[in-house]
Nucleic acid binder design. Structure first.
Length: 473
DNA sequence: CGTATTTGACCTGCGC
DNA sequence: GCGCAGGTCAAATACG
């Protein structure tokens, strides 16, 4: 219909024109920071990174013996071992030795996790077609492995930094000050982009105004879905009316504006735009919460916008920037992708971006079928339901036992359910701390003493997408 | 004729 | 204050 292939046809229960939330040439909305590293993973996983791994895991050993890179702001600068002291070679040597040990241990743990996931897959498939020996083709199998990034991957993106400080600088910052306290949080507070809404500030400030402020922001929060789709239309269960169309700067494809017409005064709106670089990619951005009952099909998407925003805004991870949880969600929702989902809390409004365009080659077969172009009509529902489910956990103070039990039960789920459940679980603010222990027991059979791969080994080969590792890059 | 879409004008926020 | 870009409005138009 137009240059961008955005149909302005009727919106209905059957079909509606896919709206694309325009992104700049680099596929990111202007002023929006993608907190994922994708290609930067190599950098993240570089030797430099490894050097901070061992000491870090050692640091965590007493409480959560997983070696997880729980790169919350509590841990981001854990490589203080790379301090500016030039006479610290002895420490470095020691660290390298420990690193070597960790590397070996990580390999062993990866094997364990592969085994575990193979078992899980077999259980779910409920068939014998996957009867290969566990170790066979372990390096090449396409089976997805949970890939939970708990870290501030974005921080590797120097371009996103406004203060000019590199993260190497940050890492070199001493952990402890003379007062014996860890001031890294404060440091990070200073260097994190100030324009990013400090979502927890409201909580810190406390009081009854929190809800109001949060709700106000939630209303403006957005959920953006990037999906590769040949189909011009998808179904999300709602009725939409087009009320405008604009040419966005930097994109020859027009951006269309729709509002929900299922009820008078419904504030929900969405934008649809086709990606400038790849016009097979549709970007749909939802904003607002419905003020009326929704059909089941539409419920999911509605929940997505509201709960995703809520998740973003209610994130109580050690970080107050609303970023960390985003990676958790992304990595759990799309465990095999390096950059499939982002949550940006940058101005003006936080935006949850789910990038499904890279799922084709990394998702398990079942998920590939779901996310394939011919089934893109289901995308909003899938995503929405996932986010909706995770919202059920939001605000809950899950105990470690609960988390451990929940994760242990994942083995009883289908892969789709597993994705859903993991997403929900990981959305919990306490997930980062709890999941480590929980997974430890899960992997090691409950003794809680085993280790989960923690370092860059996941990135030291070409099959990183297929590996089961936890990153805190 | 009622409803939905189109499209230019208008409003608003932001950066310079 | 000005210009730009994003977002919205509303009259005109199209469609069933």
């Amino acid at each position: 219909m137009d240059a961008g292939g955005i149909d302005g046809g009727h919106s209905s229960h059957s079909h509606f024109p896919v709206k694309i939330y325009t992104t700049s040439a680099d596929h990111k909305p202007p002023n929006e920071v993608n907190f994922f590293t994708d290609k930067n993973d190599d950098v993240v996983a570089s030797n430099n990174h490894s050097k901070l791994t061992d000491d870090y895991s050692d640091h965590r050993h007493n409480d959560i013996n997983t070696g997880l890179h729980l790169l919350s702001r509590n841990t981001i600068v854990r490589d203080d071992v790379m301090s500016t002291d030039s006479d610290d070679k002895r420490s470095k040597d020691k660290l390298e030795v420990e690193l070597e040990k960790m590397s070996i241990e990580n390999q062993r743990l990866k094997q364990e996790l592969h085994l575990m996931m193979m078992k899980l897959q077999k259980h779910e498939d409920n068939s014998d077609e996957d009867s290969k020996p566990v170790n066979e083709g372990s390096e090449t199998m396409m089976m997805p492995m949970p890939f939970i990034d708990l870290g501030l991957a974005s921080l590797e993106d120097e371009n996103s930094r406004s203060d000019g400080k590199s993260h190497d600088e940050l890492r070199r910052l001493p952990v402890n000050n003379v007062d014996g306290k860890d001031h890294r949080e404060e440091i990070l507070e200073q260097v994190l982009p100030s324009k990013v809404p400090r979502l927890n500030d409201a909580k810190i400030d406390g009081g009854s105004n929190i809800d109001q402020a949060t709700e106000a922001t939630i209303r403006k929060a957005r959920v953006s879905v990037r999906a590769k789709s040949e189909a011009p239309m998808i179904t999300d269960g709602c009725q939409w009316r087009k009320y405008g169309q604009k040419m966005a700067k930097g994109n020859p494809c027009p951006r269309a504006y729709y509002r929900c017409t299922m009820a008078a005064g419904c504030p929900v709106r969405k934008q649809v735009q086709r990606c400038a670089e790849d016009r097979t990619i549709l970007i749909t951005t939802y904003e607002g919460n419905h003020n009326h009952p929704l059909p089941p099909a539409a419920m999911a998407m509605s929940s997505a916008t509201s709960s995703a925003a809520r998740m973003l805004l209610s994130g109580s991870m050690p970080s107050s920037d609303g970023i960390i949880n985003s990676n958790i969600l992304a990595r759990s929702l799309f465990p095999c992708s390096s950059s499939m989902a982002t949550i940006s809390a940058s101005a003006p409004f936080p935006t949850v971006t789910l990038d499904l365009t890279q799922s084709q080659n990394t998702l398990p077969q079942q998920q590939q079928q779901i996310f394939s172009g011919q089934n893109n009509a289901l995308l909003p529902q899938i995503i929405g339901q996932t986010l909706y489910n995770q919202s059920k956990f939001s605000g809950l103070q899950l105990s470690q036992d609960t988390m451990a039990g929940t994760i242990s039960q994942l083995g009883q789920l289908s892969r789709a359910d597993l994705t859903d459940a993991v997403t929900a679980i990981t959305a919990d603010p306490n997930f980062a701390l709890v999941v480590a222990k929980a997974l430890t027991s899960f992997v090691s059979g409950g003794d809680g003493g085993s280790h989960v791969n923690t370092n860059n080994n996941c990135n030291n080969n070409n099959n990183k997408d297929n590996e089961f590792c936890f990153r805190g890059n």
